[in-house]
Design a protein around this nucleic acid. Structure first.
Lengths: 200, 200
DNA sequence: ATTAATACTGTATAAATAAACAGTATGAAA
DNA sequence: TTTCATACTGTTTATTTATACAGTATTAAT
C-alpha cells in the first residue's frame, strides 16, 4: 500500500474525526475550511489522491460520499508479539476491529490477545482481548502491559520505583516477578482498560 | 418522551441502518425511495416530526444533516432485574452504551451486568457486562440467561429437554441447578455472546 | 533535464439537496 | 364539530455540493 504524504494523512485523520464526531463525512468545502484552503478544489484533489491510493472510497455524484477503507480503520488486535519487535509492528497485528464506543474509560490504542492463565483469578483468561491504553504513568493496582528483556507480559503492577519493579500474576500457581530496571531491560507499554471476550 | 407512530419508527430505524451501513445519514430523496414515497417532502415531514419529538436533530442547510439523539441509540445495559419484570423493561435499563462493531458473533440485544461469583471459573466476574442475544434455541455448552420463577440467572446450559433442565455454575462452591420446566416456571432469555469489562 | 506528483488558487457549472408552499385524505382528540 | 396530527403527492427554489478545467509553484523521481 502506497504511503501517504503528511497532508494526505492529516486529511484522512480529519475525515475520520468528522465521521465519529458529526456522524457524517465532511464536504469538500468543510475540508477546505478546516485546512484554510481558499478553494474547495484543493480538498477535491486530496480526496482523489487518497482514493487512488486506496485509503478512501469516493461515491461519485453523492454529497458527503466519502467512506474510509475499513482495513485502515478500527483498532488493531495484537496477537503473538515477535521477540524484540514493537507491539504495534504490522507483523504483530492479526486483524483490526471496528469499535466505536465510549465503553472504556480512556482511548483504546490496541487490543492484546491474552496467552496463558497467569491472570485467571481476576477473570482474564486465554484468548481474551484486553484493551490497552499506551502510557508510561501507571500506578500500583493497575493491570499493565510490560516488556521485560523483549518479552511482553500482562500483570498487576505491585510496586514500581527506579530500583525495583514487582509484577503480580493473579494466579496462585505463579510467583511475583521482581525486576531491577537498571539491570534488566524493562518498560511499561500501557495500561489495561478492560476486557473483551467473544464466545463462538 | 412522545411515542412514535409505526411509520416514524420505521424511518428512524432506516436512518440508523443507513448510518451504520453507509457511514452517512440518508438524504430526503433516499428515504423517499426506500419507502416508495413519490415526493421527498414526505420524508421531510417525517424528519420534522422525529425532530419535534426529540428523536433526531436536523442540521439546517446541511446535506444529510441528520443526527440521531444518542439517548435512543446504543445498547441497553440491564442491571438489577426487578422480580417478575421483563428484562428489558425501562426500570431495569441502567444506561445505554454506544457500541458499533462487529466484535461479537451475533447481534447484541442487550448487556447484562453480572452479579455474584457463580461463573468465576470461566472468567465472568461480578460487575462484568455480558453481551446477550435474545433467543430460545440454545444448546448444551452455551452460557445462557435463564429465568426460573421470576429470577434471572446466568449459567452454562448442561442439559435441556421437556422434563429436565440442568444449569451448571462455573464455580466449585456452587451446585448444579436442576429444574423440571413442566412444574417450575422456566424460560430461556438468551445466549451469552461475550464479555465486556471496564476497569476504572 | 524532463516528467510526474504534490499542493495549492480561482472560476465555473451541473447536479444534488434541503426545504418551503399548496394540496388531498384519514383518523384521533378536544 | 372542529381542530390537530399523520401521511402522503406535486411543484418550486435557493443553496449546497461535487467536480471539471485552467493556472502557478515546489519537490521528488527518471
Amino acid at each position: 500500500m502506497k504511503n501517504l504524504t503528511t497532508r494526505q494523512s492529516e486529511i484522512l485523520t480529519f475525515i475520520s474525526d468528522v465521521i465519529s464526531n458529526e456522524g457524517m463525512p465532511p464536504t469538500r468545502k468543510e475540508i477546505a475550511l478546516k485546512f484554510g484552503f481558499k478553494s474547495a478544489n484543493s480538498a477535491e484533489e486530496h480526496l482523489k489522491a487518497l482514493d487512488k491510493k486506496g485509503y478512501i472510497d469516493l461515491h461519485g455524484g453523492t454529497s458527503r460520499g466519502i467512506s474510509i477503507n475499513k482495513s485502515f480503520l478500527g483498532i488493531p488486535i495484537v496477537g503473538s508479539v515477535a521477540a524484540g519487535s514493537p507491539l504495534l509492528a504490522v507483523e504483530n497485528v492479526e486483524e483490526r476491529i471496528e469499535f466505536n464506543g465510549n465503553i472504556f474509560s480512556d482511548s483504546v490504542d490496541y487490543f492484546l490477545r491474552v496467552k496463558g492463565d497467569s491472570m485467571n483469578e481476576v477473570g482474564i483468561v486465554e484468548g481474551d482481548l484486553i484493551a490497552i491504553n499506551k502510557r508510561k504513568d501507571v500506578k500500583p493496582g493497575d493491570i499493565v502491559v510490560a516488556r521485560i528483556n523483549d518479552d511482553v507480559t500482562v500483570k498487576t503492577l505491585f510496586h514500581l520505583d527506579k530500583r525495583k519493579v514487582i509484577l503480580r500474576p493473579e494466579n496462585k500457581n505463579y510467583k511475583n516477578i521482581e525486576i531491577n530496571p537498571s539491570v534488566e531491560n524493562f518498560d511499561i507499554e500501557g495500561k489495561c482498560l478492560g476486557v473483551l471476550r467473544n464466545y463462538n
